[in-house]
Design a protein around this nucleic acid. Structure first.
Lengths: 196, 196
DNA sequence: GCTCATGCCTAACGAATGTTCGTGCGGCAA
DNA sequence: TTGCCGCACGAACATTCGTTAGGCATGAGC
C-alpha cells in the first residue's frame, strides 16, 4: 500500500496491518494487541517500532494528508490540464484512492478525530489546506462559467463525501468493474441524475 | 412533566445525551460515565434504565432505521407524487435529517458496526430493506427514461453518501441557510456540476 | 571473540472500562 | 402504618486497555 519505502519491512508491515484494522473496526476498537496479532508478534514488541499507538495513527494520518496534497498540487501544476479537466482528475483521484487505499479516505474524514489534541491541530491544517485548494478550484470554474455557480464549500464537501461509501465496500472489484463504477460516479457528479 | 412520547423523561434524556455523544466522539470513545455525567446522574444509575451500554446503541440504531423506513414508505405510498418527485423527497428527507437529527446519519452509516453480532444482523436487515426500496425507485425511474441509466446501487450509495458531511458539520445554520444548502445540494445531485 | 544495537519475548503495571451489588430514599397502594 | 417499587447512590468487581521493565537471542562491525 502506501507506507514509505524507506521504512524497515517490519515497521511497514505493522503500519499496513494497523491501517487495515483501523479501516475495518475503527481506531478505538482496534487494540494494540490486535495489531500485534495481525502482524504476528506480541503487543509489547510493537514498542520497538513505535513509541505509542497514537503515533501509528499520527503517521498514517499525516502520510495520507500529504499524499492528498501532493496529488492536488500535481494536478493544479499540470499545464496539460485546463480547469475543467483538473476537477475531473481530482475526482478521479478520490475514487482511485478509495479503491486502492481505502484507509486513506477513512483517515481523511473520520479517524483523525482520535489524534491527541496537538497532533490534531497540525493534521487539520493540512486538511484545511487541501480543502482550500479544492474549493478555490471550484470557485475558479464558477467564475469562468464552466460549472454551476454556488457555494464552493458546499459543492466540495458534497463531492468528497459522495465517494465515501466506496471505502467501506467489502467487495473485491475487477479492473473493469472499477473503471465502470468510476465512470458512473463521475458522470453522475458532473452531469447529474436527470435527463433533460 | 414532559409530553410523554412513550418513554419516561429520564430515559429519554439519557438517550438524547448518549446520541449526541455518540455523534461527537463515536460509540467506543463514549464511556458510560460520560453519558451519565452529561445526564447529571451516576454511571450506575444508568442501569436502572438500560441493561447495558450496547442496548442504548441498539435502541438508537433500530429507532433510526425504523424512521428511515417509515419516511421512505410514506413517500412511496403518496399518490400526490410522481416518481420524479419521490426521489427528490427522499433526498430532501436525508438532508433534513442531517440537519435536525444528525445522530441518525451517523448511526445509519457508521456506529451500527459497534452492535453485538446478533443485534447487528437484525439492524442490517432493516438497512438493506431501506436501500432496496431506494434503488428500486431509482431503477423504476431509469426504466421510464427519467434519469440516466446505470447501476441503481452505485447511484443510491453515491446519493446517500453525498450528504454525510452535513452530519458532522458543527456549525449551526439558520433556517434560511438550511434551505439554501438544501437547494444547492439537491440541484447539484439532480442537474450535475457542469453547465451544458 | 567481544561488543553492541536490534528485535522479540514474558511479565507486570496503573488506568479506564462496563457492570454488579447493597443500600437508601421518596411516593403510592394496601 | 406497612410494604413495595422506581430511581438514585457509592463501592467494588473483573476485564481490557496502552504501556513499561528486564532479559534473551541474533548478527554485523571492530
Amino acid at each position: 500500500m502506501m507506507p514509505e519505502s524507506g521504512l524497515r519491512p517490519r515497521k511497514k508491515d505493522i503500519l499496513e496491518k494497523a491501517a487495515r484494522l483501523f479501516l475495518e473496526r475503527g481506531y478505538k476498537s482496534t487494540s494494540v494487541r490486535d495489531i500485534a496479532f495481525a502482524t504476528g508478534i506480541e503487543a509489547s514488541s510493537l514498542y520497538s517500532h513505535f513509541p505509542s499507538k497514537e503515533s501509528i495513527l499520527e503517521l498514517l494520518c499525516h502520510e495520507c494528508a500529504d499524499r492528498f496534497n501532493a496529488a492536488m498540487d500535481a494536478i493544479l501544476a499540470s499545464a496539460a490540464d485546463n480547469d475543467l479537466s483538473r476537477i475531473t482528475r481530482v475526482l478521479e483521484f478520490h475514487i482511485d484512492t478509495a479503491f486502492e487505499d481505502p484507509m486513506s479516505g477513512t483517515v481523511f474524514s473520520d479517524e483523525w478525530k482520535n489524534l491527541p489534541e496537538d497532533k490534531k491541530v497540525s493534521y487539520l491544517e493540512k486538511k484545511r489546506n487541501y480543502e482550500n485548494k479544492f474549493s478555490t478550484l471550484l470557485a475558479a470554474l464558477m467564475d469562468k462559467g464552466l460549472i454551476v455557480k454556488g457555494d464552493p464549500t458546499i459543492k466540495m464537501n458534497t463531492l468528497i463525501s459522495s465517494v465515501r461509501w466506496l471505502h467501506h465496500s467489502k467487495k473485491k472489484y475487477t479492473a473493469e468493474e472499477k473503471t465502470a463504477i468510476k465512470k458512473e460516479i463521475l458522470d453522475m457528479l458532473t452531469l447529474g441524475l436527470l435527463i433533460e
